[in-house]
Amino acid sequence: MSEQEEKPKKKTRREFLQQLGIVGIGSVLGSSAILAGINYDKKKTEGQRIRILTAENELLEIEKSDATPVVKTKYENLTYLQKQGRDGIEGKRFVMVIDLSKCQNARKCMSACQNAHHLRPEQHHINVLKMEETENTPPFYMPKPCQHCDNPPCVSVCPVDATFKRQDGIVLIDNERCIGCRFCIAACPYSARVFNWAEPLHAQEDADKTYDVELNVPQKKGTISKCLFSADQVRLGKLPYCVSACPNGVYYFGDENEDAVTNGTTKETVRFRKLLADNGGYTLMPELGTKPRVYYLPPKGKEVPFQEKDRDEAAEHLSHS
């Protein structure tokens, strides 16, 4: 496969495609660029034009008959995805802002998340909680994803580096590595983690998929799953699944380094620190020193009141004390 290396870096489309064929037949060693994956649409038939995304993020449209899919072993693909997933995105520090004054318990975030990550109905990467903190303070709805702490207790206790924090602040779980000891569940003060107690929901359909650590799909029995800040979406410049699914403008997501967060409903981008300053932003349980990357705006001036039927459930947590 020395032909690959001999060629100059800049290629014409034709040459590029020819190489795909060659590479496709032989090994893909040394062609890390191609490991990035070429997404070609399986559904289209012969003679049609298809779009492929090159490793350099160039979108090309070609005759399908010209394209030969690169035969990649599962392992090689996995290695690439693992490396990309563990490295994270340079120069970024992702943050989420959740405006509690807007949350109406619509739960679109929860269903979008469960669909994206192939979760069972009782598995919540994000969970909308009915909260009441003291007897006389008003109840409110509180979406609770993983807080992606900068001092994550869950990551500290992991014995095998299966859960880890990336340079961009996102805390991920590698279910190819996880031994299922559940120490992270015990350590997380936000109850943000779930476990695959049984065979995952789409175990059979997902059996042939290559595991993407940024999506945590396919889920695996006996391993942890958790909110990933939709690392796969974020890499593409898209907002997380929950954020864009919200109909009520609850979520903002963005980059602390850019001092900007984008609302998932209106797509408006605003200054991150100003948003917090103007609305009294805070983090959950700051006294624990976990330094969350998820910020909350208080449930002040809600236009639609807390549902009376949810009041008992909200008060239940308090009743024990």
Binding site: S101, K102, K108, K238, P247, G249, K267, G301, K302
Partner: peptide, 21 residues
């Protein structure tokens, strides 16, 4: 991707300050 479905009725205001009365 930037499609938004408003199946659920309760959509809340931006300012939160406008009294809906």
């Amino acid at each position: 991707m930037y499609r938004i479905k408003f199946k659920i009725a309760i959509i809340l205001g931006f300012t939160g300050l406008i009294n809906f009365q």
